[in-house]
């Protein structure tokens, strides 16, 4: 009997049940950032915009515009400001409209100039 058959019997079903049940590997995926509006100031927002390599972040007035479609989940904004940015943990990001992926995050932090 071929070895792969025995090995297959021993390991059982490896296929994910994904749409019906959550997949165990989903927690390890790199995900776009989630922001803390209270920790975001204009200066910090500008710094995050400079750090972003894929133009996913822009600032317009007191709002940080985050384009989740452009985000590559590289983690540079999290590295630059770990107190204000953490991984969102969301990987189910398919959108039926490009505009649904653009999020406006208010800058509520103290110490604006």
């Amino acid at each position: 009997m071929p070895l792969w058959f025995v090995r297959g019997l021993r390991r059982g079903v490896v296929t994910t049940r994904y749409p019906a049940r959550p997949d165990s590997s989903a927690a390890a995926l790199p995900t776009p950032p989630a922001f803390r509006p209270q920790a975001l100031t204009r200066e910090l927002a500008d710094r995050l915009c400079l750090v972003c390599p894929s133009r996913a972040l822009t600032r317009s007035g007191d709002v940080l515009v985050f384009d989740a479609g452009a985000c590559t989940a590289c983690g540079r904004c999290q590295e630059a400001a770990p107190e204000a940015v953490t991984p969102s943990g969301e990987f189910e990001l398919a959108a039926t409209d490009r505009g649904h992926l653009v999020k406006r995050i208010p800058l509520l932090g103290e110490g604006d100039s």
Binding site: A68, S88, H100, L101
Partner: peptide, 24 residues
């Protein structure tokens, strides 16, 4: 997994989720 979800959204078997997310 994200691709699977996208395909399932395309054929209306899963609802779009990102519209309600705020990323805050």
């Amino acid at each position: 997994l994200a691709l699977l979800q996208g395909l399932l959204v395309a054929v209306d078997r899963l609802a779009e989720k990102v519209r309600e997310l705020t990323f805050t």
